[in-house]
Design a protein around this nucleic acid. Structure first.
Length: 353
DNA sequence: CCGAGGATGAGCGTACCT
DNA sequence: AGGTACGCTCATCCTCGG
């Protein structure tokens, strides 16, 4: 499956298309909802992974898109979904698209030889203080501007760890609240959990503006709100995207293993939402019986969201890059199973009506 | 003081892209 | 040829209850 370059997805905000030329994609018949669904994972998975995932999701053409078109950090992801794509609208206001716009205070310290305009992908680990000190030493012991060798070393580390300039000859890792900002989360969304967990949860999450752009078409389909099944919810990137779009979530069933992440989502939910949040820990515990009875009770799910674990896909994993059969990434099959189940139940409900 | 359990930090290759 | 990647492991440090 070839990766598009540039990785712009089916379309971007501001693409000028004449109504006649609008890209109306043809979905395979069996892919058409209800329910709508939205699956996400890293774009640069091992070869063959996306072809397989697509084959489990009704052979829909995947949408590869880099969030650098929506914020100041790269985030190459692939989305397989059955949402309409011809009347998308971006979340406003736009997020800053360059480092300087996102963090203007760093401009005064930014050396001209650090040519980065955007951050690389936000990951789950942060640079250690020892590395920061080492960079500080390297800069302090060199001329101004530093030699080409020092520049290359420092710039390399800045790229690798997404460092910013916070003083004369001084770099620092992004703070958790700065990452929240880049990814489109409310300020202090993850506050209250320990720092390592904050970095991990944020590094694993959606970029809100990107997801919101895709979800924007749902606003007019469900003016009275929707019932959502959110698998692998993490800290609620998708939920926040829907909320920012002004889409009401009636029943939200959120499935997330991490207790810490569930608490973050619950806290946000209680502060912003009025309807029901049902939180469940394990996707494996979701049975077809439970789904059927829940669907009867609430009248069906309108949207099934899921970004299943990527850790056996990503190149950052030096130990267990086992692809779809990896211990965690194989949970994708539960997304597929649950989606099939929701789809089947929805259709049988419709037939009875 | 002592030990268990959580938090932190340093070091760790490769596949696949341009 | 160069650059990037929603990470993992293990040793060590820290914290807290007893």
């Amino acid at each position: 499956m070839p990766l598009p370059n540039p990785m712009v997805g089916f379309n971007l905000p501001g693409d000028r298309v004449k109504p006649m030329d609008r890209y109306i994609r043809l979905l395979p018949k069996q892919a058409i909802g209800p329910p709508f669904f939205y699956y996400e994972n890293v774009a640069l998975a091992p070869k063959g992974v996306w072809a397989t995932i697509s084959s489990f999701l009704y052979d829909i053409q995947p949408e590869f898109i880099d969030s650098k078109f929506f914020c100041a950090a790269a985030r190459k992801r692939c989305y397989i979904h059955n949402l309409p794509i011809d009347s998308r609208s971006p979340l406003l206001p736009f997020a800053p698209r360059t480092i300087h716009d996102a963090f203007p205070c760093t401009k005064q310290w930014w050396p001209s030889w650090d040519i980065r305009a955007r951050f690389n992908c936000i990951q789950t680990c942060r640079a250690s203080s020892a590395l920061i000190e080492h960079i500080l030493d390297a800069l302090a012991n060199s001329e101004d501007p530093p030699s080409a060798t020092v520049q290359k070393y420092v710039l390399g580390q800045c790229r690798k760890w997404n460092l910013v300039w916070v003083g004369r000859h001084r770099v620092a890792p992004l703070e958790p609240d700065e990452i929240e900002f880049l990814l489109g989360f409310p300020k202090d969304h993850t506050r209250g959990i320990n720092s390592t967990e904050r970095y991990r949860s944020l590094g694993n999450s959606f970029q809100v503006h990107t997801v919101a752009y895709h979800f924007s078409v749902l606003r007019e389909v469900f003016p009275n709100g929707m019932n959502v099944l959110s698998l692998f919810s993490e800290i609620g990137g998708a939920e926040i995207a829907l909320h920012k779009l002004g889409i009401r979530m009636k029943t939200m069933v959120s499935v997330e293993v991490s207790k810490v992440n569930r608490s973050v989502l619950k806290t946000w939910w209680d502060q912003t939402q009025t309807w029901t949040l049902i939180d469940i820990a394990d996707v494996k515990s979701i049975t077809s019986d439970w789904l059927e009875s829940t669907i009867k009770e609430i009248g069906g799910f309108d949207l099934v969201i899921g970004g299943s674990p990527c850790n056996n896909f990503t190149g950052s994993n030096r130990y267990h890059r086992g692809g779809l059969e990896g211990e965690h990434s194989s949970l994708f099959y539960h997304y597929s199973r649950i989606l099939d189940c929701v789809k089947y139940s929805s259709q049988s409900v419709m037939q009875r009506v």
